[in-house]
Amino acid sequence: MKNGSIITIESLIKSFPIGGGEFTALNGISLNFEKGEFSGIVGPSGSGKTTLLNILGSLDSPTKGQTIVLGTASDQMSPRVAAMLRKKHIGFIFQTYNLMPVYTVFENVEFPLLLLKTPAAERKKAVLEALEWVGLTDKIKSKPPQLSGGESQRVAIARAMVKKPDLVLADEPTANLDAENSHHILQTMEKLNKELQTTFVFATHDEKVIGYLRRIIRLEDGKVVSDENIKK
């Protein structure tokens, strides 16, 4: 593990049982992510982006090979340890926002802190701060069904960021958004990446997202075909 690297993957293979045989979704991937990166896994549909992202987020485990996510190796990753890791250090942003419809914006953002048993006063402060980052302080009492897609995704960003995680994984975060909203949330994430040194890893095939990335990892048929850093 290099200094400052937060994820290391070596010779990762992930296959799924289908029918009688197996389908190999990721085939021999070795990658290294460092703190503060703003990177993306890019590739056509079915290339394995989501599968890879889920393994990075310890939602799934490799079939073969090794991963070390935030200091925990895949062979030591019990479901409990994985849950703890996600709870403390990893934030997720989904294509479909996945907000809890019965909760207000405030309560949605507060949720990860409740899981962490953060004291109430501290919680309130952190939630308001996170909502300020995404520019939604005027919507704290709204519920998700009353929000636009762009607003919903900003709430999801605030929810992922409120605990100041080391790593944020965003799977097609702009797929349901128009251009204006896409740029807005990407700028928000870029800003948070710079201010808080949070590592962002995207999975996307959206050109708008690709335009913001400082590292592009191209995936095809479960294999890395290119990995380039972009000077900005």
Partner: peptide
């Protein structure tokens, strides 16, 4: 299901 998946992603155990 989505909500369930989200809880798990946010670090709750099953």
């Amino acid at each position: 299901q989505r909500e369930i998946g989200t809880y798990i992603a946010m670090g709750m155990t099953r």
